[in-house]
């Protein structure tokens, strides 16, 4: 069912591209400027995460033991099973967002809203999962000010959670804007940007998941 959407013979990529490139050159030019700006924004956001990931890797490598000791208590590892589950929720939301945009491109409004709502729900589900994860980690004695493990974990996942939260709000606003008719079949840069942002948030989580749960 899921894959049928993109392969449906609505229009090829060329047709979609032609729709906004040829209809309105002013829009095409401003769109390409805004798109480049948005991609640069995502790249510089990578550096923000990159700096903290560097901090985490540095602290972890230079620590005598990992997980570190706090007093006589050795901190527990993070719970991989639940994190894998929660990751899948977030990755799934990435796929649903992709479907939402594809449906918009192919002028299928109703399916767009359905997939968008699915994305928002999955995003909120991920945030709830993170809240659950945090309580579990806190119960294990890993606290923000208590150890470098807690410091890097809560700062990085907190920053990421904040990005997800912003993303959820962003997608909600996009949905409302789409309802108000701001976007058309050829002018929908906001939706593209929202999708890119959401994919970006997913991919940051791939890195964080690897660093905290797999390494």
């Amino acid at each position: 069912m899921a894959t049928a959407v993109a392969t449906a013979p609505l229009a090829g990529h060329e047709a979609v591209a032609a729709r906004y490139l040829e209809v309105d050159p002013v829009y095409a030019e401003t769109r390409s400027i805004r798109l480049l700006g948005f991609v640069f924004f995502l790249l510089s956001d990578c550096v923000l995460f990159g700096a903290f990931i560097f901090a985490y890797v540095y602290l972890r490598i230079s620590a005598p033991t990992w997980p570190p000791f706090v007093g006589n208590h050795r901190l527990p590892w993070f719970d991989t099973a639940f994190a894998a589950l929660n990751s899948i929720v977030l990755f799934g939301s990435g796929v649903t967002m992709h479907f939402a945009l594809e449906n918009w491109k192919h002028l299928n409004r109703q399916k767009f809203y359905r997939w968008l709502i699915a994305t928002i729900i999955l995003g909120l589900g991920f945030l709830l999962g993170q809240a659950h994860e945090w309580t579990g980690v806190l119960r294990g004695g890993v606290t923000w000010p208590g150890s470098t493990m807690g410091a890097s974990f809560f700062t990085l996942t907190g920053m990421h959670g904040f990005h997800v939260f912003v993303g959820v709000c962003y997608l909600t606003v996009l949905g409302l804007q789409a309802r108000r008719g701001i976007y058309t079949g050829s002018k929908y840069f906001g939706l593209t940007a929202g999708t890119l942002y959401w994919h970006f948030v997913d991919v940051i989580w791939v890195v964080l998941f690897t660093l905290f749960y797999v390494w």
Partner: peptide
């Protein structure tokens, strides 16, 4: 990259 994430999960 997200597909890679799925493999990791």
């Amino acid at each position: 990259l997200m597909a890679v994430g799925c493999v990791l999960a």
